[in-house]
Amino acid sequence: MNAKLSGESALVRTVGHTKAHVPGEVGIWVFILGDMLIFGAFFIVFMYYRGLNPELFSQSQAMLNQNYGAINTLFLLASSWFVAMAVEDMRSKQVRLAPVFFALAMFCGAGFGVVKIIEYSEKINAGITITTNDFFMYYYIFTGLHFLHVLIGMGVLVFLWLKARAAAKNKIARTDDVIEKDMVLIESGASYWHMVDLLWIVLFPLLYLMK
């Protein structure tokens, strides 16, 4: 595939990763795996309590709007894809589309936030709060902590976008050293954002769908 692409400057992958390579810096994986461990514990605690009172959980779940959950999944998936494309572009000597991709990723992240706020305000206006019952306790705490991750991620995306814009403005072909140094930051931030996506992928069926 690389040979085929070599004529096109935009997306030529000059830094081919043939060797095994940890995405980003090793330290970010301490955070990512640590967070996945904690959310794993959240999911398991949720299932344990669901098993104690399945009727309550089903009835409460019926009060959620599945469309919000689904649209937000699509938002985060699209956002993740844009980020992955931006990362690929950042590996080339001349960065072109990465800033656009990061901007689109932020747009999708913001879309997630807007839908989430609409959803929360609908629930609160209907008198459903964290103390309504066990199901809504989990709903608010899990989605709330996830939303905190989204907000942190938006900050990370702004940072990556600035990096990408600086790289795109630079008209001289970047050296491998510069690319490698940039990629450590870019891949770390991107991996974090993908983790935010994958946690939501599990929360979606757990809270909104399963009967």
Binding site: G27, I28, V30, F31, G34, D35, I38
Partner: peptide, 14 residues
């Protein structure tokens, strides 16, 4: 080492 930074922020969130 830098991973200590990530570790501390992870603890903070926990």
């Amino acid at each position: 080492p830098r991973w200590v930074g990530y570790f501390n922020i992870w603890v903070a969130i926990l």
